[in-house]
Design a protein around this nucleic acid. Sequence first.
DNA 1: TGATCTTTTTGAATCGTCTTAAGGCCTCAT
DNA 2: ATGAGGCCTTAAGACGATTCAAAAAGATCA
Lengths: 339, 339
Amino acid sequence: MATTNIKEVAQLARVSVGTVSNVLNRPEIVSPATRERVFAAIRQLGFVRNEVARHLRVGRSRTVGLVVLDVANPFFADVAQGAEALADEHDTMVVLCNSAASPHRERRHLDQLEQQRVLGILITPVEADNPRLLQLAARGTPVVLVDRAAHGSQCSVSVDDRLGGRLAGNHLIEQGHRRVAFVGGPLSFQQVADRHAGITSAVEAAEGVVLETLSMPALSIAEGRAAGERVAALPPPSRPTAVFCANDLLALGFFQAMTAQGVRVPHDVAIVGYDDIDFAAASAVPLSSVRQPRDLLGRTAIDLLLEEVEEPDRHSHRQVIFQPDLVVRESSLRPGAST
Amino acid sequence: MATTNIKEVAQLARVSVGTVSNVLNRPEIVSPATRERVFAAIRQLGFVRNEVARHLRVGRSRTVGLVVLDVANPFFADVAQGAEALADEHDTMVVLCNSAASPHRERRHLDQLEQQRVLGILITPVEADNPRLLQLAARGTPVVLVDRAAHGSQCSVSVDDRLGGRLAGNHLIEQGHRRVAFVGGPLSFQQVADRHAGITSAVEAAEGVVLETLSMPALSIAEGRAAGERVAALPPPSRPTAVFCANDLLALGFFQAMTAQGVRVPHDVAIVGYDDIDFAAASAVPLSSVRQPRDLLGRTAIDLLLEEVEEPDRHSHRQVIFQPDLVVRESSLRPGAST
DNA sequence: TGATCTTTTTGAATCGTCTTAAGGCCTCAT
DNA sequence: ATGAGGCCTTAAGACGATTCAAAAAGATCA
């Protein structure tokens, strides 16, 4: 309410508002005596600079928006942490927005962020090729895609999901599995489609391996459980002996269903997840998973964004693609090996 | 760059800027013909209202800050979702800030939020009785404490953590355990201290039960694992037969260490966690946990905040306290019962 | 002491939008 | 034809900070 402004400070310190502003922004050009007087006034009044007015005048904020598919997924929490860490070094704030995989919510967030004239937006889009994203960029809000490769007209930071899928597939095949399942979300998610394509190529390169695909409506623990129940209900001869899940939440849910139904992991069914979230290693049977450099994704995204903002001339859109690793743990080791 | 403003729109539509503003904010008072002309101009230019300027003029934003201890903890993700859901209905945006339990980062976020003149702040403070929070409120930024009870001078939404601790304690004692351990974080976290006080009172009310306390530096999976390794290393006779962890991350880590060391859960050691995050139910041995109404916490916090902002006269600070439930699952059931 | 430089400080303009009082245009009744 | 009363629209003044040209104050030197 009683928001003190720069003018009151100026009055109290018996200087002009311009001087107060200088004290705030370039203290070195103000004489020490004056500077001290102004600081004293600021302290006395409890003055807090109005960032909104400043931003209006200066023309750009020090805030970037990060729109993720699911805040509750630790994968994104880690990406966010990486982004925040680097942003912090550049005196920039990251605001986290949750689209919850809903195009409508995503749209709302993008509108809000554009209206706020944020420095830029990092986003894992719900849908591929959203024209809104190009529009944003065209109107002056740079956009960096996260965890999804762009097609040249924008920056992106992603991980080679096909490779990830292939690594998982090859590993399972090497372990001797011939009936393999892929449990994924909607193939409209690029990540899911790519991981599926990866394991498909691995399966096709091998002899006599069959791949079955379960497409669940979401990438959550609950859906993983549902998929698991379906698989557990199959008679053992027709049941896949190995499952590759499109992310760790699915994998954990799937694993839970297996345990509940008395299907042993990895003895009866091997499982490989994706993302290598902390919970994967912490599972009772530690989960094999394809690891992505999560916080590097976040850091790099911020890096690209700031480069675009700060040196628009020297900047050209780049698509950074990281390589995933397969982390093999007990959940996918051939039963013989450990027993 | 080429940010079009209301003036250009006015020019193109051949009206004054005031009229454009009216079309944007009170379309009903503008004649349909003019209105349509203005809309057409807006579309043609791709005009996006500058929320910053608007905010400066109007004096308050439609954004509230939510500062949490750990974005990677699903508990907070759910609180955030609840808050966002209700905020959404009131056309308000929630920005999520991660203090990562660091007072320094918390301070930075609070400064930023105050400078941005947010509508208000929801926060799970790192330290008890932070005077900064009262200062914020005094200067006009309302604050609601989340997951921590306030002392009358501010609003808060919390869960009765002592009761939660007592529930966990009583349950373990009823299951026949006499050597019980509490695995917590720093007792400077109010939540940890209260949960500890709760189980302590349960233990004191019983005969011949001893409680041992392990205080870890953080409430994470990794620390839970560390605690578990310490406990597993004890000779069985002096090892506690039941463990109550201050949150589910600790519990999951602890459980993992047990499994890794060949200590059976619940046969050798029973475990009860806190928060009942999705991962708890999804653990290989489903984890008993004290459940808090997570998204209700978020919703209620927003509710209190908006009430304070919108009807300052009628508002008086309230401390809402919810009751936790104990969800009993396999991890804490007496071995005899299931074997 | 006055001239010349340098260091500080000032004051007005500006950012983009909202708001309010005032004015313009119509229609209608007198 | 005139004035009243409704609608709409306009124009000008905030909002709070930054910036920059220009003025003021000091410093230096002959």
